[in-house]
Design a protein around this nucleic acid. Sequence first.
RNA 1: GCCGAGGUGGCGAAAUGGUAUACGCACAUCACUUAAGAUGAUGCGCCGAAAGGCAUGUGGGUUCGAGUCCCACCCUCGGCACCA
Length: 805
Amino acid sequence: MPTKIYNPSKIEKKWQKWWETKKIYEVKDKVKGRENFYHLVMFPYPSGDIHIGHWYNFVGADVFARLKKMQGFNVLSPIGFDAFGLPAENAAIKRKIHPQAWTFKNIKKMQKQLRSIGAIYDWSREIITAEPEYYKWTQWMFLQLYKKGLAYRKKAKANWCNNCRTVLANEQVIEGKCERCDSITYQKEIDQWLFKITDYAERLLKDIEKLDWPEKTKIMQKNWIGRSEGWEIQFLIPNQEISISIFTTRPDTLFGSTYMVLAPEHPLVDKLTIEQKEKEVERYREKTKRKSELERIGAGLEKTGVFIGAYALNPVTNERIPIWISDYVLLGYGTGAIMAVPAHDQRDFEFAKKFNLLIREVVRGPKSGPLEKAWEGEGDLINSSWFTGMASGKAKDEIGEYLKKRGLARKKIYYRLRDWIVSRQRYWGAPIPIIYCQDCGIQPVPENKLPVKLPSLSNFKPAEDGRSPLARSKKFIQTKCPNCHGRAERETDTLDTFVDSSWYYLRYVDPRNHRHFAAKKKIESWLPVKMYVGGAEHTVLHLLYSRFFAKALNDAGFINFKEPFLALRHQGIILGPDNQKMSKSRGNVVDPDELVKKFGSDAVRLHLCFMGPYDQGGPWNPGGIIGISRFLNRVFNFANNFGKTIKNEEIKIDLSLFHQLIKKIGEDIESFHFNTAVSSLMQILNWLEEQKFVSREVLEIYLKLLSPFAPHLSEELWHHLGFKGSIHKEIWPKYDVSLIIKKEVQIVVQVNGKSRDVVTVPSGFSKDEIQKLAESEEKVKRYLTGKNIKKVFFVPDRLINFVIE
RNA sequence: GCCGAGGUGGCGAAAUGGUAUACGCACAUCACUUAAGAUGAUGCGCCGAAAGGCAUGUGGGUUCGAGUCCCACCCUCGGCACCA
């Protein structure tokens, strides 16, 4: 009799093909009796390879999607590619291959790799953001925001390499130097398009409360938006008609403000700097341009700055205080100027120490004696004239109100959030659909002229003047004004790829619609997304931008919801051998194809699920996958031998553990605790192998429990049992509540909190009964005899603790 | 620096404030085998002959009882607005 051998690569290919020809994963917009469930996983960037970090993301998401499907939902779980972006251009310049060719070659390879996962993707809904049918609608989105006044032009900073004459991404600046030519980079002001996300700051902050998102993600977004309530206060310049406006949340420390600091780029610096200081100030400003923001604001860094020779008046003390410039003050936050209170702000303290500026304590801290560092907490005011003795909290308002009466202050809310710069001086992106006419000014491209197609170029370096490579194409630039039909020029910048991904979830519900980004009916039947799965590294940018888009589209009447992703779960980040995030650009990726070849897709899936908590991630460690492989083999053998040795179904076996674990596996998948779910599957198998008799029903249930994790093997064994249909159309097993109640429990007996014994009793025993029993146990008696029992703690069905002298 | 997460056996890890180390890997011994592999059985935190004691990054605290709660510190990872 030939024994069947588990050959994963053979059966996996077989079933993948079968599923495809039977179209079992095809998603219909409406299925009778099934509620729609939109389950979204963050789409990959086509870097060239699906690495093990992608698998980790997709497998967990797929297990969850399969559970939802088996629970009776009509599940949409689509896939696509976030296909525009910088690496394609780098590849083009380095390897002389067109970004489009490079991107689509990668996509082809990755499609194949993705199929090997065996996920329930409906490939007929695939989207690729670099295709004109897609970016037509990205451009359309831009136009809607423009119409609503949410897109505008402004000068903004970009990294600039003077040698390459090009704008650089942050990633291309290595320690202040250009990645390609090693020359020092500058911050250069250029004309940019921005989205007014700050208009939505308050709503983005408020609506986040309602979302079923990880608490840490919500906190990070809130901190990113950074609402702070405070006061805007005017510091007058003696003998001049101007004043410097500052923002502070601590007016209570105003008496301790002994100098001011402006951002080097602050517009008043030119007006205020005295002649003798001009050269020094100019030199400092030049130096600042070479620093990135991160290099400027670090508190541990040595403070730098220049006194500009001018003074302002402290509005409460009327002292003349010196005005400095320093790069630790940023123009982009608050008013770009601060009142420095060295005794109560650590960065001001470091600055004052370095330049020997006056430090005056005005809030009583916990320590007395000379200050070693700033006291940033609250307390009673000291050295504050008639406010001395008042508590900080009260003094904030009192001092604010006092200045308000004199017209020197007003209450103000500031946000840390800044508007979103969406223009890029690059080739591989969606062209911004704007036309510049000498007579009519800025003109949006009419919607019926979309898409503005990306021309095919051969040189992808930005133009010498820093403009986008598109500026090289005369054919592209020259056009007619949609308003006066005279000669006009196209915008040559392209859109940030985050714009593409801010709305992609909308396109999946109706990916081939030529007349609209999606039909209203389909939007309403699927959206918003019920579960979104992706990396925690997207917490503040992609996830915030998408929320902003949804709100703006809702305001414009295009969609009927205000939040795109009702629930969100993160997979942890898989680290490469260098202990850093796995990514193609770092060159530390681990290719799963070899593992799939060796152990099979199901084994890789199980291993990724079993490795550890899904949201934790950590260094990639293939050790242990052999254990998974053994486990699957045992399942295969158990199920195959089942038919031969069976089985008297009348013999009753204790199913309580089985039903407890059915419950646990369902709950674990629902809560993304895949590792403990897999461990439960192993426990069931251990239990099954111990049983003398197992009914066919138990085996069928077991295969269903396994099917979200090992879709291929479970399908194979399902068919061995004689079924003709797919196991993936089955309903998730229910557990029997009456069977999961424990009849016997083990009670831990502690003396003074130390475990001394365990007694097994029927569940529901009373405190008195258990106390009596425990006191009679030899191991416990030993500790109790001759001692006075002060107190007895009892936790029903769990524990009893004797507290003795 | 700022915001967020994590630190438990040799390793991946488990644990509603209630027996720390489930499940798996590695390792050891045994069985089967000519052998290797595969498979199966048993053992496996540390100290100790045992009784018992000690162990969840470090130091303190709360509690009858702390991996879990609070405070301080150390280390690792993610994000910081043009990588996606």
